[in-house]
Amino acid sequence: MDEIDVTPANVAPVIEGVDEQPETAREVVFEIRDGAVRYGSNLAVADVNFDVGAREITAIIGPSGCGKSTFLRCLNRMNDFIPGAKVEGRITYHGENLYDPKVDAAEVRRRVGMVFQKPNPFPKSIFDNVAYGPRINRFKGDLHDLVEQALTRAALWDEVKDKLKKSAYALSGGQQQRLCIARTLAVQPDVVLMDEPCSALDPIATSRIEDLMVELKRDFTIVIVTHNMQQAARVSDMTAFFTTDVGEDASRVGRLVEFDRTHTIFTSPSDQRTEGYITGRFG
């Protein structure tokens, strides 16, 4: 994946099957059919249909305001907290309807963790930040081991092992974001959703987080929303391209335009709008 050149002028002939797994081996984590989000009576996102495969990185790209983040938040029921927000269509998680009234949303969020755009550690020590999730989920076992494991996986352990009792606010922005990733990993989730996790970080911190994502892919399913097309091209296996449809009454609805292998999206997109966006003609 790393070698892909995203400039369309240099689009190489697509070599089928280079990084493909046989379709039958794909384990589906999320199945989204006619996914839509309404805020009150306003339709914000509509017509979303795609599957998120296990241990894959799925990138969601698209121009600002096309509902990428709104949609991402459907996958762990974070939209529950927005008054008036309503999710329509059918979203299943390992075959179970995510929006069944019997589903425990807190349990969903424990399994489907989320890393936000801005690093947002708790006003607690580094250790307590990572230990927070296990503690509230009544983790029984060696908390120190778990915290070390999570910090190691987030590639932060060596930088913070001598100052675990220090405030999390003493860390740099990139470190704080890795701390937030460690905090998410500590509850041992199945999926990690990332909402523009690098947009507040410099290129060095960004590349560390990207390396981390590729590393985490072995054990976790990752869905990432990003503004940065190069980032999507660098790290993701599958890419969903969203755009904004402006209706006659000036209503703006985000829609899924195309979903395919990242390689295909960036080399031979089947929709003109996708091509326009990745070549920088709009958005």
Binding site: M78, F81, A106, R110, F116, F122, G133, N137
Partner: peptide, 10 residues
């Protein structure tokens, strides 16, 4: 802060 607590299953 609330969001990140909820996102951890809180």
């Amino acid at each position: 802060l609330r969001e990140s607590a909820y996102a951890l299953g809180g």
